[in-house]
Design a binder for these strands. Structure first.
Lengths: 120, 120
DNA sequence: CTTGCCTCTGACGTCAACGTGAGGTTTTAG
DNA sequence: CTAAAACCTCACGTTGACGTCAGAGGCAAG
């Protein structure tokens, strides 16, 4: 498949896909004329990358960790990195839960009929 | 209290506090000589701002919502906005949970003794 | 063969939340 | 009184993940 097809099936922009390749996260075969060609496995690869980006990992970090996924092996350093990121995500989830509760409080507080406006 | 004190007690940089004021999120009285002066309520205000930033809200969004908090009243538009942000956070939490599980899978997968290396 | 969409490689633009340094005033400790 | 520390206002720098435009070539349809 060509880059436009991959973009469509992953809902990721063409620019982003080229960026991923630039960062070393995604590889592609090239046609005679230089166009990028991808196998179907690329779809899953892009999804994984998106998921890790979504979790707040940087290109650099993802680049370090992808080889582990591919080789199914982690060095002590990369394992440490993985655990650190997981813990960071856990902490961030906790933070988001607190913030959501806070927003809910605000919603409740501001949605309750205002006493000053109540009929006596 | 002066800006340095507020920075210390909230663990937010002086620059950030000035930035919050620039964005209209934080107000300050001024001394004769022009230095910012804050009441103790400013600490909670900054904490709230930090929490909302941490939840991924932008200055602009926070600016829209703070008056609701202060007045304890929300217009239909702002209520809609609050609910939308809450739902976005909920979705993001779900995304993070998925990503964390994915990371855990990777950790497990790469930490298990490699079969190819096992003694027969 | 040409029209129109896809792709290519640069390379500059963007946006948000600050960081950082300049150059100058104010407050505080000794 | 004086030196250090804290404060002030500009105003440019930073970072990451792309967006966007330019200029040029590639590819299936009619």
């Amino acid at each position: 498949m060509r880059i436009g097809d991959l973009a469509t099936s992953t809902r990721v922009s063409v620019r982003a896909l080229r960026y991923y390749e630039e960062q070393g996260l995604l590889t592609s075969a090239r046609s005679e004329s230089g166009q990028r060609l991808y196998g179907s496995a690329a779809v899953d690869r892009v999804r994984l990358i998106q998921q890790l980006y979504g979790a707040g990992l940087s290109s650099k970090t993802i680049l370090e960790l992808l080889p582990c996924v591919d080789a199914k092996v982690s060095t002590p350093e990369s394992r440490e990195r993985l655990v650190a990121e997981r813990d960071r995500i856990t902490a961030q989830i906790a933070e988001l839960v607190v913030a959501r509760d806070r927003l809910n409080d605000i919603i409740d507080m501001t949605s309750r009929p205002n006493p000053q406006c109540d009929y006596a």
